[in-house]
C-alpha cells in the first residue's frame, strides 16, 4: 500500500488552486440589482398604504367610522353632504357579481374546451385570439357597454332600463375578465399530468367525466387562483363602470338602474376640482382604503382556500 498522506507541497498547491482567483464583483452587482427590483414593489405597497392611511385618519376624525361604514346615503358633494358608503359598496358588489356570473361559466367553459376538447390546430388559433380580448383598453369596453349593449340589445329586452345601468357594465366587465380566467385555468389544466387522463380513460371514463372528475379537481388550486385574479380585476375596474353604470350612488339591487361603484366615485371625484384638504377630498382616500381592505381580505381568503385544496390533494 502506498502512503495516503500526500506531501506538504502538494497540499499547498491544492489549496492554492481552490482559492478564488479574482473577486466576483459582477455577481454582487447582479444580486444587488435583483434585490432592488424585489424591494421596489414592496416599498410601493407600503407607500400606498401610508398615503391612504393619513388622509383617511383625518377623514374619520370628522366623520364617525360607523356613519361611514353603515350609512345608506352617499352625497359628499352636496351642502351638508352625507358619507354613508353602503351605496358604493353595493354598487361594486352588484356589478362584480354580474361580472362573475358571466365570466366564470364562460371562462371555465372555454378553458375546458381548449384544454380537453379542442384539436391542437384549433387551440393554436383560439387561445391567442382569446388573449387579444385582454389587451383591449377598458375605455373601449366601457363605450361598447353603453353604446352597443345597452342601446341596441338591453333596451329591447328590458324596455324600462336606464341609459346608465349596472347590468351592461357587469356583463361587459365579465367579458373583459374571461381571458384572464380562461387562460390561467387552461394553463392549470394543461399542467395536469397526462398520466391522470390516461388513468381515467382506461377506467372507461368519457371525455366529460375525465375533464370534470379528474382534470378539474387536480387543477382546482390553479383554477381558483384564476377566478380570484379575475374577480380582483373586476372589483378594481374603473373605466367600464364610470362610463356605462353612471355616477349616481344608489342603494339598490336592481341591475337595470344606474349605480356608482367605489372605483368610479374615486375616478369621478378625483378628476373634479375638489379643494385639497377638504372633507370631500379626504373621502376619496377613505373609499380607497376600504377598497384596498376588501380586496386584501378577498386575496387572503382565497390564498387560504387554495392552500386547503392543496393539502387535500397532494
Amino acid at each position: 500500500m502506498s502512503t495516503i498522506n500526500p506531501d506538504a507541497t502538494a497540499l499547498t498547491a491544492a489549496a492554492n488552486s481552490l482559492r478564488r482567483s479574482k473577486p466576483h464583483y459582477g455577481e454582487r452587482v447582479i444580486r444587488g440589482l435583483l434585490l432592488l427590483a424585489a424591494v421596489v414593489s414592496v416599498l410601493t405597497t407600503f407607500g400606498i398604504v401610508i398615503s391612504l392611511l393619513i388622509p383617511s385618519i383625518e377623514f374619520f376624525t370628522e366623520i364617525p367610522i360607523g356613519d361611514f361604514l353603515f350609512g345608506t346615503t352617499w352625497t359628499p358633494l352636496f351642502m351638508n353632504g352625507e358619507f354613508g358608503v353602503l351605496p358604493l359598496v353595493s354598487g361594486t358588489l352588484v356589478i362584480t357579481g354580474i361580472a362573475i356570473i358571466v365570466a366564470i361559466p364562460l371562462g371555465l367553459g372555454s378553458a375546458i374546451y381548449l384544454s380537453e376538447y379542442a384539436s391542437l390546430r384549433v387551440r393554436k388559433v383560439l387561445k391567442p385570439t382569446l388573449e387579444v380580448l385582454a389587451g383591449i383598453p377598458t375605455v373601449v369596453f366601457g363605450f361598447f357597454a353603453l353604446e352597443f349593449l345597452t342601446q341596441l340589445v338591453l333596451v329591447k329586452i328590458f324596455p324600462g332600463i336606464e341609459v346608465f345601468n349596472a347590468l351592461s357594465a357587469g356583463i361587459i366587465m365579465g367579458i373583459m375578465i374571461i381571458p384572464t380566467i380562461a387562460s390561467l385555468s387552461e394553463d392549470a389544466m394543461a399542467a395536469v399530468p397526462s398520466g391522470l387522463r390516461d388513468g381515467a380513460y382506461a377506467l372507461g371514463s368519457t371525455k366529460r367525466q375525465t375533464a370534470m372528475k379528474v382534470v378539474i379537481p387536480a387543477a382546482l388550486s390553479g383554477i381558483v387562483a384564476a377566478f380570484v385574479l379575475g374577480i380582483s380585476r373586476a372589483i378594481g375596474e374603473t373605466m367600464i363602470v364610470t362610463i356605462a353604470a353612471g355616477l349616481q350612488p344608489q342603494l339598490t339591487l336592481n341591475p337595470l338602474q344606474g349605480m356608482q361603484t367605489m372605483t368610479s366615485y374615486i375616478a369621478a371625484a378625483g378628476s373634479g376640482d375638489l379643494a385639497t384638504g377638504s372633507i370631500e377630498y379626504k373621502s376619496i382616500f377613505a373609499v380607497g382604503l376600504l377598497l384596498f381592505i376588501l380586496t386584501f381580505i378577498m386575496n387572503v381568503f382565497s390564498i387560504r382556500l387554495v392552500r386547503r385544496f392543496r393539502q387535500v390533494y397532494q
Binding site: P193, G195, L196, D198, G199, A200, A202, V214, P217, A218, V312, Y313, Q314
Partner: peptide, 8 residues
C-alpha cells in the same frame, strides 16, 4: 401504467 397515476 408505468408511473402510478393515482387520482388526487
Amino acid at each position: 401504467f408505468q408511473k402510478p397515476n393515482v387520482f388526487p
